[in-house]
Design a protein around this nucleic acid. Structure first.
Lengths: 342, 342
DNA sequence: ACCGCTATTTAAACCGGTTCAAGTCTCCGG
DNA sequence: CCGGAGACTTGAACCGGTTTAAATAGCGGT
């Protein structure tokens, strides 16, 4: 098999210099039309594609962006966010032939991962996802000079452009929806408080209760996992006066919670109303179908990718606020049960 | 901010030539120990890391592998296989500092995607997943000279090393398990026949029935989707004599099927037994918990990555056969209902 | 025929590593 | 004191593009 052609081969075949070929390739003005055609057909004839490595070396751009997944490996398959988010990224970057590099990292190695990413210059920029309270990464990437965009809310002052999708309106709608159904005792099963988005969802639940003039309800940690959601649900149902509705930080714990409640003999939604968050593909196929909150991770990925490209090219980008998440009402929420008493 | 240091800076500081620095970096024999130390401390002092682009250009290796996801975007978040599989890949390649490039491609653009991948030489090799009947890719990558490993079974003759995990034993176990419970009419809801693994799972169901001397059962397409699983289930339950058990091609359609059955007033498993495939995180949290088949996608990813690295470095690698999938019995399967008659 | 000007083209340096062939040094045996 | 064998080092070419400054060409005007 012949060695793959280089720019020199094309130049020779077209009878021009390598510089000219390069100009044509990058369609820079100042090359005669006839020359352009000769170069193009020579390239065509040889099947030439410029070498990415060579380009990367001389331009200093790798034409790839990086996404670091910092999750316990066993939780990775659990969240429908990332696949959809990545699809959004791809849709944008593949238009210019750019690529997406995936790094997985254990929570502890995270800082080191970003250092390596910056040192290698294997990517032109990175996405910061799963932002946490006191997240070191925005400052880190600024210090490293690594272009980045934050996906979500950054709680500190930062130069890193931010692309956000507000979860809270959907959670508030959910709580209001439950209140309209007559619920007064609405509990919450939260994700890890370290995550900004988990805390903001929980806060939205608390705020909605307060706005309605209701006493602040019970919140238990569910860790965004099935097991955690199940445990929290058991704890809530074992109370002397259990809540009549539970809002969960995500669908995974909500589904587990539904199973626990049903095993305890409760009928849903007659005895207990349940709300999730994410609208995973299965949410419409639980029994009863899960009332939940829906964001648009794909559009989030698209917006984040656009912002990152802009940051890479112009040095910065404006913050973006996407359409907020919305409530999807299905069968797991219903009127508050009539209780004996009072 | 100062320009990042190059090998020349290190060489100068250490008082040696660039060649020597390069030798030390790649710990090649033949450099005096004291020189090595001087070079290393010079590199340390300057915080030097070799440029990946430069290395890629001169060595011809990018130190990255590619994974092409050919799925309809809306199905991407649906399958727990990929996240776990990628985690396995990462575990292997990150040991040597290699990276994983993700490409998403629409089913139609697939061949073009591989052409681009090969032309760009942005990756040193690729994984071929979701293998199909008459899949053009094994021949394509061979022709393109792009190192690759096939993840699953390739039905044609090919030089591409194969890493397989047999789904069939688990499906057979499932059918035998149902037969032991007294079921005689066991239907199947299949994934798209175009996928080799979907067809093999279905075949395993058919074989197990035949082995037990039972007549061949009914198989309906479910497309590996929730909606498809639901439709197939409706169709099966509407028959004059519906099956007493249904085996599904994956958990997604199984869960949807369960919902359909329950909505139709059937109790599970008393009136109908259900088996899925994948053991998604939610499978233990449906009501009843889903009996399903479990493979190990992470170990699959690890093995595939090892084989790919070997293929890249030695030109080829041996085929690998992993531990087969196994049956996980939960609450969605039970004794066949006693019917009136006969 | 010559000049100035603009439109094209190109030589050569550069990006930051890798890799041989060819030195330079030391030390040892004769 | 010399030749030669190792043990280390290094100069220089090379990977395949991009880019800038300078060369060349074509053309209307005088």
């Amino acid at each position: 098999m012949a060695r793959r052609p280089t720019i020199a081969d094309v130049a020779q075949l077209a009878g021009v210099s390598r510089a000219t070929v390069s100009f044509v390739l990058n369609n820079r003005p100042g090359v005669a039309l006839t020359t352009q055609q000769r170069v193009r057909s020579a390239a065509e004839e040889l099947g030439w594609t410029p070498s990415r490595s060579a380009r990367a070396l001389s331009t200093g751009r790798t034409r790839a962006v990086g996404l670091v997944l910092t999750r316990e490996p066993e939780l990775i398959g659990t969240d429908p966010f990332y696949p959809a988010f990545m699809a959004g990224i791809e849709a944008v970057i593949s238009e210019t032939g750019d690529g997406l590099m995936l790094q997985m990292s254990r929570p502890g190695d995270e800082v080191e991962t970003y250092h390596r990413l910056a040192a290698d210059r294997r990517v032109d920029g990175v996405f910061l996802t799963d932002l946490r309270q006191d997240d070191p990464r925005p400052a880190l990437v600024t210090e490293l000079g690594l272009p980045a965009v934050a996906v979500g809310v950054v709680e500190a002052d930062t130069d890193v452009p931010t692309v956000n999708l507000d979860d809270r309106p959907a959670v508030r709608s959910a709580v209001r929806h439950l209140i309209e159904l007559g619920h007064r005792d609405i509990a919450y099963v939260a994700g890890p408080d370290g995550f900004v988005h988990a805390r903001r969802r929980r806060q939205a639940w608390a705020d909605a209760l307060a706005e309605a003039g209701l006493p602040c309800g019970t919140s238990l940690p569910g860790g965004f996992t099935a097991e955690g959601g199940a445990q929290a649900t058991r704890a809530l149902l074992n109370r002397s006066s259990p809540p009549t509705a539970i809002v969960y930080g995500n669908d995974l714990s909500a589904t587990a919670g539904m199973a626990v409640a049903q095993n305890a003999g409760l009928r849903l939604p007659e005895d207990l109303s349940v709300v999730g968050f994410d609208d995973v593909p299965l949410a419409s196929w639980t029994s009863p179908p899960l009332t939940t909150c829906r964001a648009n991770p794909t559009s989030w990925g698209r917006a984040a990718a656009q912002a990152l490209v802009e940051t890479i090219e112009q040095g910065t980008a404006g913050d973006v606020e996407l359409d907020p998440a919305t409530l999807v009402i299905r069968g797991s929420t219903g009127p508050v049960p009539v209780r004996g008493g009072r």
